[in-house]
Amino acid sequence: MRQQALEGEVTQVHRGQQYAPEGATFSIDGTTFEVVAVRERTLGELTDSDAQAEGVANLDAYRELLERAHDHFEWDDDSDVVLHRFERQSGA
Score class of each variant (00 low, 15 high):
47 T>W: 06
35 V>Y: 08
71 D>S: 05
7 E>V: 04
89 Q>Y: 06
16 G>P: 10
82 V>W: 04
51 A>M: 00
58 N>M: 06
81 V>A: 02
16 G>Q: 05
4 Q>T: 08
2 R>S: 09
29 D>R: 12
71 D>C: 06
65 L>N: 06
33 F>G: 00
6 L>A: 07
21 P>N: 15
72 H>T: 08
25 T>W: 12
63 R>F: 12
22 E>D: 11
10 V>L: 14
41 R>L: 05
42 T>G: 02
84 H>L: 06
24 A>N: 05
73 F>Y: 04
17 Q>S: 15
46 L>H: 14
1 M>C: 02
58 N>Y: 08
65 L>C: 12
61 A>Y: 01
61 A>C: 06
9 E>W: 11
41 R>T: 10
40 E>D: 14
71 D>G: 02
53 A>T: 00
30 G>A: 04
33 F>P: 03
87 E>L: 11
69 A>R: 06
62 Y>P: 10
25 T>H: 01
65 L>G: 03
30 G>R: 10
42 T>H: 11
52 Q>K: 14
73 F>N: 00
54 E>Y: 09
14 H>I: 07
51 A>P: 06
55 G>F: 10
4 Q>A: 11
77 D>R: 11
90 S>I: 12
32 T>L: 09
89 Q>N: 05
61 A>Q: 06
22 E>S: 11
78 D>G: 14
3 Q>K: 03
83 L>Y: 04
32 T>Q: 14
27 S>K: 15
52 Q>V: 12
88 R>L: 00
65 L>I: 05
87 E>R: 02
14 H>R: 12
67 E>F: 05
7 E>L: 08
65 L>Y: 09
38 V>M: 13
15 R>W: 10
51 A>N: 02
76 D>M: 13
6 L>Q: 10
18 Q>D: 13
52 Q>A: 03
71 D>N: 08
31 T>G: 13
59 L>T: 00
18 Q>K: 15
21 P>H: 07
77 D>S: 01
63 R>A: 08
80 D>C: 15
31 T>H: 11
13 V>R: 04
79 S>H: 07
83 L>K: 00
64 E>F: 07
1 M>Q: 00
42 T>S: 08
87 E>N: 09
66 L>K: 05
54 E>M: 12
62 Y>C: 10
65 L>Q: 00
50 D>L: 10
80 D>M: 14
42 T>A: 01
73 F>A: 03
79 S>D: 15
7 E>G: 05
9 E>L: 11
65 L>S: 07
20 A>D: 04
34 E>D: 04
30 G>K: 12
87 E>I: 01
36 V>H: 05
25 T>R: 04
2 R>V: 03
22 E>T: 13
74 E>K: 05
40 E>K: 14
5 A>Q: 00
82 V>P: 03
15 R>H: 11
41 R>A: 09
75 W>F: 14
63 R>W: 03
34 E>K: 06
79 S>P: 02
87 E>T: 03
65 L>E: 05
4 Q>E: 11
90 S>V: 14
45 E>R: 13
26 F>G: 07
23 G>K: 07
59 L>D: 03
68 R>M: 03
75 W>M: 01
82 V>D: 03
20 A>H: 07
